[in-house]
Design a protein around this nucleic acid. Sequence first.
DNA 1: TGTACATCAGTGAACGCGCGTTCACTGATGTAC
DNA 2: TGTACATCAGTGAACGCGCGTTCACTGATGTAC
Lengths: 205, 205
Amino acid sequence: MVKQGYHHGNLRQALIDAALALIEAQGPQGFTLSDAAKSAGVTPAAVYRHFAGREDLIAECARQGFEIFADLMEHAYNGGQPTALAAFEATGRAYLAFARKFPGHYMAMFESGVNFNRNPDLARASERARSVLTRAAEALSQHIPAARRPPAAMFANHVWALSHGVVELFARGAPGSRSPFPPEELLEAGIGIYLRGLGLIAPDR
Amino acid sequence: MVKQGYHHGNLRQALIDAALALIEAQGPQGFTLSDAAKSAGVTPAAVYRHFAGREDLIAECARQGFEIFADLMEHAYNGGQPTALAAFEATGRAYLAFARKFPGHYMAMFESGVNFNRNPDLARASERARSVLTRAAEALSQHIPAARRPPAAMFANHVWALSHGVVELFARGAPGSRSPFPPEELLEAGIGIYLRGLGLIAPDR
DNA sequence: TGTACATCAGTGAACGCGCGTTCACTGATGTAC
DNA sequence: TGTACATCAGTGAACGCGCGTTCACTGATGTAC
């Protein structure tokens, strides 16, 4: 981290990073503005030069999370190449990969109780992430016979819910951690069965 | 509520009920031992006659939740009648019904960060709930050709994850509440597609 | 290049607050005779 | 039935703590001349 500003260099981002580490370690409710300040080597009052307060700091953590999240999924989707199906499956895997690699961000986004609509930047970022998944679902929908094609938004929501459920229940120390299956395998198999149910994968594959 | 004890009657249960109402209203991190005592009409210190402390009170809320949860799912499963499939679907619906009807319990169980294994009674209750779903999955598994039958535990975990994801993302005020589908419909459709993917529902149903 | 001044990131002390928990107590309820 | 005693659920005051936030300040950095 290069010194570039007045005293600290880039305190704003340092505080965000500290907050993310604390959220990851102690959960979003264990997160403390004072602790974040201390671990950035700064007085709690200094935080107010960069953020309106505690809530604002968490919201910024979540926002950055959604940006990374959307980028990752976008990259995995890869414009729908090589096939709509492969791209969709890659997007699903990217979901879980994000949750694993950025647990602090994930918690700030989905477990901190932050109100998405209180902060316009946050709302925009979360909308962008959501739209990647929906777009992938729409493209894939084209391959389903119109007669039994569910709305693409529903389709996307199913995959999102399954992914989120796997993360919350099986990907962390929490409740169902007795599961004998690695979460990646669990999610991939689940999405596979689901897609077969949509007629997108041959029954005997 | 009948007066039956010394002073209050049944303060223990009154505290649990108060805690559940607070958790439902303010989330599990907003829950306060002092508030629970106040809303039960009692001094905070009185709580310690019935519980070891704050954590113990939350754990008891979660435990009672798991008992109700297991009972509801057991009842819905109905011994696998009339068919394994119908019973399984009813069990899935019972999951969501529980989350809707007992939001305080649900939050205490899955969002409070309570450690299941710290409290043996809680561990037992949660295990019982889990076993109902697994049993339903096992019975239904018998109808899947052995060649592409996933382990019943995986099967059960998929349904659990999907249900939990729907509850967390779409059944409350939270993130994805913009979903144009009622959660019940979303979950039922999702499970339907999933079961079709397993070959348990005819493709053209 | 050197000096005087303006800016503003971070300080340090203080605040009011509500939390979970403890403790000696009190007084209503239950029980023995 | 009446009295004396034991039990123990709930009281009230107090504690130490760490929180988020405020405020006047200081002193390092940047800028004008």
